[in-house]
């Protein structure tokens, strides 16, 4: 049989479009469940703790090192006026880009994989079927609380990442580069700080939603035992990371004038 490249491309394209369609339908159903009662508040608060509170250490650690290295890199590339330029560029870089994107990528690894593995394990052990038989809809009981929790706690995490990241930049500037601490803080505050932080927080909410939806989607489609659950976790992380970076570009373009 002769290999037909067009048929192979066609099959791959059809598979990709089918997957996008299934993900879109899943997202629509979950968002509808997020926006209409009943909302399972106990589950929601429990997920807020898991997604938000327990992610604080990893987000904080990431932010402090990124802030410090960003400031150092800007300093290395600056010949004149470093004390003015380093804080100005640091605050834009951290609040608009690195804070939300890196926090989201860390959470994609931590939360998306965890959600996919948890829901995947529930799927292969028939717990999702059990939910159906008990007249509970998984999109309401399982998925909506996770998506709501991730969407609402991610901006808080990113706000903390912004503060910690700028602290990292401040520390390196004051301790290693001999900058004046108060001058650094004044320069940070002057540069459209509210607009920059707001853009980052909007991005964070979108990233949070992507992280939870990818985890739920891949988990709910897992099959075939432990191997299937592992595959679902991997696909969730990869899918979430790609969508975070793609949507970041779209949102950066949208907010470029802000």
């Amino acid at each position: 049989m002769i290999f037909n490249p067009f048929a192979a491309i066609g099959r791959a394209s059809m598979a990709a479009f089918s997957e996008i369609g299934r993900l879109a339908i899943f997202t629509g159903r979950v968002l509808l469940a997020c926006l209409t009662p009943p909302i399972y508040l106990r589950e929601f608060f429990s997920q807020c703790m898991k997604v938000g509170f327990f992610s604080l250490p990893v987000v904080g650690m990431t932010a402090v090192f990124i802030g410090a290295s960003l400031a150092l890199n800007i300093y290395v590339g600056t010949q004149f006026g470093a004390e003015q330029i380093v804080p100005t560029i640091s605050v834009i870089g951290i609040t608009r880009e690195l804070g939300p994107v890196l926090a989201a990528l860390m959470l994609a690894g931590r939360v998306s994989a965890g959600v996919a593995a948890e829901i995947g394990a529930m799927k292969v052990t028939e717990q999702i079927d059990a939910l159906h038989t008990l007249s509970a809809k998984p999109e309401r009981y399982l998925y909506a609380p996770r998506v709501l929790a991730a969407t609402l706690t991610m901006p808080i995490l990113v706000l903390i990442a912004d503060i910690v990241g700028l602290m990292g930049a401040w520390m390196i500037c004051v301790a290693a580069l001999d900058f004046s601490g108060p001058t650094f803080l004044r320069n940070v505050w002057q540069e459209n700080i509210y607009e920059n932080v707001s853009v980052g927080l909007i991005k964070a909410a979108v990233f949070g939603m992507i992280i939870a939806i990818m985890g739920c989607y891949q988990g709910s489609n897992s099959k075939g035992g432990a191997g299937g659950v592992g595959r679902a976790a991997t696909l969730a992380v990869v899918g979430a990371a790609v969508l975070i970076l793609a949507s970041n570009y779209v949102m950066t373009s949208m907010f470029a004038d802000t």
């Binding site: 529930m122 028939e126 717990q127 008990l134």
Partner: peptide
């Protein structure tokens, strides 16, 4: 109007035993 006992039990890992048993009473 039906109940189901699954092969592996399919109890919800994240809930306590009593929460599993009374799931339909609290949720529905």
């Amino acid at each position: 109007r039906t109940g189901m006992l699954f092969q592996g039990g399919a109890l919800f890992d994240s809930l306590k035993v009593w929460e599993n048993v009374s799931f339909t009473l609290t949720q529905n």
